[in-house]
Write a protein that binds this DNA or RNA. Structure first.
Ligand SMILES: [Mn+2]
Ligand SMILES: [Mn+2]
Ligand SMILES: [Zn+2]
Ligand SMILES: [Zn+2]
Lengths: 136, 136
DNA sequence: ATATTGACTTGGACCAAGTCCATTGTAGGA
DNA sequence: TCCTACAATGGACTTGGTCCAAGTCAATAT
């Protein structure tokens, strides 16, 4: 049983069959599903689940900080259960496979003050692109 | 007159009033317009220009490498005439202002081999987020 | 065990961003 | 000036997502 479900229950999250299957579908490493993929997998287990419910539930999981919303390609957003330790993404330009990666160093430090235009810079998002072993 | 237009003419790009105004609208530093913003500004000069023409023209400019397509926020794509020297973006979370920035160092070098999962990594895209002087 | 009720789910309408296509127009060469 | 390959048009269509009124139900209280 996923400890995501445990944590959610511990936080007093109201449990329903729909919410359970959505949370269950979002388990594992390197998981970056679109909302429609989540819907398809959830519907395999609970056929009458509605699209709006999947969006509502994903939105709440994001608000709770349990799932990260990732815009990888300007198309559908992806939902990433690995929200507890921040990380970056490595994306295959061939097959769109996504891996979680942890670069060395602090990318914030690479932006010199002269290039900050008076901004208070708070976070950095890095996307590495290339070809996976299969697509190369 | 923009040297973008000169370059396009030199490349044998067929010139039309529509293409001219789209290219003219895309001039300047730190310009990151959405397709609809390009349409609005082009239509101020050439009222009957069609949405599809703006999309067609932007698509061609991107294919020619004269304009870069940037997905900054998972909303509408932005079109960036500063395509000749690669750069990264600094985005205000308050007002969505976008500045071009050039971080120090090579971000590719920060991704250790052990974190490459057999990929041939070709490019890196970095987005810095924070608050601009006005929004802070 | 049952009643209660506020929160959750549903399906469909709606929306924004973008693509597609048949028709009409025209830039630029002969 | 004529021709024609390429470009522009506008409207339908698609994708990804939001919103809402009505119905349902999980959790609590009795
Ligand atoms: Mn991830
Ligand atoms: Mn830029
Ligand atoms: Zn691949
Ligand atoms: Zn701002």
């Amino acid at each position: 049983m996923s400890d995501l479900l445990e944590r959610l229950r511990g936080r007093g999250w109201r449990m329903t069959p729909q919410r359970r299957v959505v949370a269950e579908v979002l388990a594992g490493e390197h998981v970056h599903l679109t909302a429609d993929e989540v819907l398809a997998r959830a519907a395999a287990r609970l056929p009458e689940i509605a699209r709006a419910t999947v969006y509502n539930t994903l939105g709440e999981l994001v608000a709770l900080g349990e799932v990260a919303e990732v815009a990888i390609d300007g198309r559908a957003k992806r939902y990433d259960p690995n929200a507890h330790r921040p990380h970056q993404h490595l994306v295959c330009s061939g097959c769109a496979a996504v891996r979680d990666v942890r670069p060395d160093g602090d990318p914030l430090a690479d932006l010199p003050a002269a290039e900050r235009f008076g901004f208070t810079v708070l976070e950095v998002e890095v996307t590495y692109r290339g070809l996976c072993a299969d697509c190369a």
